[in-house]
Design a protein around this nucleic acid. Structure first.
Lengths: 153, 153
DNA sequence: TTGAAATTGATAAGCCCTCTCAATAGGATA
DNA sequence: TATCCTATTGAGAGGGCTTATCAATTTCAA
């Protein structure tokens, strides 16, 4: 977002996720590379991206950065708990988890309008269901499809 | 000839969706074919399928039924509002909408295992959110992603 | 029954994503 | 700091799932 463009050095904002990544890398005997830092920094500036999008975005900063590296790195972020993959249409969206969990969607099947909402009670019940099944929730997706006021005529 | 002569007992169950399909076809100048009837009948007996699954299931009844036809027909069902496509992993799941609201999913991001669940309280809250926004819900999708007991180590 | 238009089946093509592998880079160790 | 083992990278090939193509067939209104 624009906040970041005004501040070229975003280290303080990124510190938390960078730390999570570092810990994950250490734990699995992986290495912190220039590419991984670059991709993480760019990734954290957005709520969700596709590999293709990042490929074009980063081409300016590093014209030789390969698409495969981006896929690999985004998948690494998922394993580290920084990102969440979501299959949407034919593509995979990688969501920034730190921005997540707070906007579910009401989608109008008539006109395609999307209304975002948040409901703590629903989230609490989700946790309950997960616990009952022995799961630990990382993220979720809730979409309600229906007709908006206007499309109901 | 018709699958209904072989299995008359499915007639009453399929009537509603078959009617929906007929109306959709009429509205768009499409035709009701033997294949579309066959695929709809098989589709309605299941909660969710992949094109590949149906291909194998139906190979017994019609060895010459093509995979492309199944994809085309399942997509047609989506347009007619009988099915709902859901991208999971690398494949597309086609859900039977008439079973809607009766199985949401807990999905393990470690091993891909899926646990189905149902929670009336969550559904009630969804209705509440929709009403508050002036929407009338037709269907919904709720997926909780996390680690299953085994993948938590 | 006829004929225009939709549909089908087989397969080629396309799209995303992952795998392969030689070259390069990270970082633990001395 | 230099060395060496291992992880990573980039480029392109490969692969799985889905859609497009097209001649032959089927549907259905007239």
């Amino acid at each position: 977002m624009s906040v970041f463009h005004d501040q070229p050095y975003t280290m303080s904002k990124n510190l938390k996720e960078m730390d999570v990544l570092r810990q994950h890398l250490a734990k699995h005997q992986l290495k912190l590379t220039r590419q991984r830092e670059l991709i993480l920094t760019a990734f954290l500036r957005q709520e969700h991206v596709t590999a293709e999008t990042m490929y074009h975005q980063l081409a300016k900063k590093d014209p030789h950065l390969g698409l495969a590296t981006i896929y690999r790195t985004l998948n690494l972020f998922c394993e580290a708990g920084i990102a969440q993959a979501r299959h949407f249409g034919t593509q995979t969206q990688y969501d920034n988890i730190s921005h997540k969990g707070h906007h579910d969607h009401l989608i109008c099947t008539g006109c395609g309008m999307i209304v975002e909402f948040e409901n703590c009670e629903i989230e609490r019940l989700q946790e309950e269901v997960a616990t009952k099944n022995g799961f630990v929730i990382q993220t979720h997706r809730l979409e309600l499809y229906g007709l908006c006021p206007r499309c109901r005529h």
